[in-house]
């Protein structure tokens, strides 16, 4: 059995095909996220014009061959604004996922290993969790002023407790694992136990959690922009495009529709990816071939 596994390499194509059969969610989700990323990165080359260019003649223009998604209140091209808006959403999603996981990891590891720190940190985290994340973000932004950076920091702070709790629970269960205890009695220094035996085993659940954080951060950013507490109006984001289109929704629904669709598409893609990854990492789904 083992001889076969080590001598015959599995071709890449077959690997993807197998993944498609077993976990189609991963492929679909990854493809949807890839489309959003490509749109964000390649925005200038996707037939867009300056998203801030005001053209009064095109006010509330309906979608057509020239203006794919139509024009907004002041005649800006909704298609260009939606494509450029992906940059803000994805930057916020990625930034929050990285920031939240990094700080959550530190807090979680500390409270998982150091008892008195646990008491203090977890009460603080409970307090943070008790405040709705959007309210917390609005409060933080009103203190610091709206900018992309501040939005990322504000949403990250709201996400830290969830990550910290996840990491803490994984650490607490790993600490009881005989192989970690064997490492202790083998004289392995604490830092090495952390790096060798604990961290690698927290990565899988963290990656899954990261996708959920990403999705919820994209949504939170849109909500913040919608209520005017997010990205400044000078930068198009899906939230503020929808907010501006809201007033004329009954006569020009396309202004709200297209950024709304983009938002749903991205969040759905990331969530599908996360669900698929969770299935892959879940030991109950592990197939022994």
């Amino acid at each position: 059995m083992s001889a076969v596994a080590t001598t015959i390499p599995i071709p890449e194509v077959r690997g993807v095909l197998r993944l498609w059969r077993r976990h189609p969610n991963v492929i679909i989700g990854a493809a949807m996220l890839a489309i959003a990323v490509i749109a964000a990165v390649a925005a200038p080359w996707l037939g867009t014009v300056d998203p801030q260019m005001i053209a009064p003649f095109n006010r509330l223009e309906t979608p057509g061959a020239e203006f794919w998604f139509g024009g907004d209140l002041v005649g800006r091209d909704v298609y260009s604004r939606t494509v450029y808006g992906a940059r803000v959403s994805l930057a916020v999603g990625l930034g929050v996922a990285i920031g939240g996981i990094l700080f959550g990891l530190i807090v979680g590891l500390l409270s998982g290993f150091v008892r008195w720190v646990d008491q203090v940190l977890m009460r603080v985290m409970d307090g943070l969790m008790a405040i709705p994340s959007i309210l917390l973000a609005v409060a933080l932004i009103s203190l610091t002023g709206a900018s992309l950076q501040n939005v990322i920091i504000a949403i990250s702070i709201a996400e830290v407790p969830r990550v910290a709790r996840l990491v803490r629970s994984v650490v607490l269960s790993l600490k009881e694992q005989p192989y970690v205890e064997a490492a202790i009695t083998s004289g392995t220094p604490f830092v090495l136990i952390l790096l060798r035996h604990v961290l690698p085993n927290t990565l899988a659940p963290l990656l899954v959690q990261g996708t959920y954080i990403f999705a919820s951060a994209v949504l939170t950013e849109a909500i913040l922009s919608f209520i005017g507490a997010g990205t400044p109006p000078s930068t198009p984001s899906w939230g503020n495009i929808i907010a501006e289109g809201r007033t004329v929704f009954s006569i020009a629904p396309h202004i709200v529709l297209f950024p709304g669709l983009a938002l749903s598409f991205t969040v759905l893609g990331v969530n599908l990816l996360g669900d698929g990854l969770r299935d892959i990492f879940d030991p109950r789904y592990v197939s022994r071939t």
């Binding site: 694992q177 005989p178 192989y179 009695t185 690698p200």
Partner: peptide, 18 residues
């Protein structure tokens, strides 16, 4: 600890799977 070692009951969880 060099002189004091241990063998645990559960052979499955006493080795790091990674």
């Amino acid at each position: 600890r060099q002189y004091l070692q241990v063998v645990f009951q559960d052979p499955f969880s006493s080795l790091n799977p990674r």
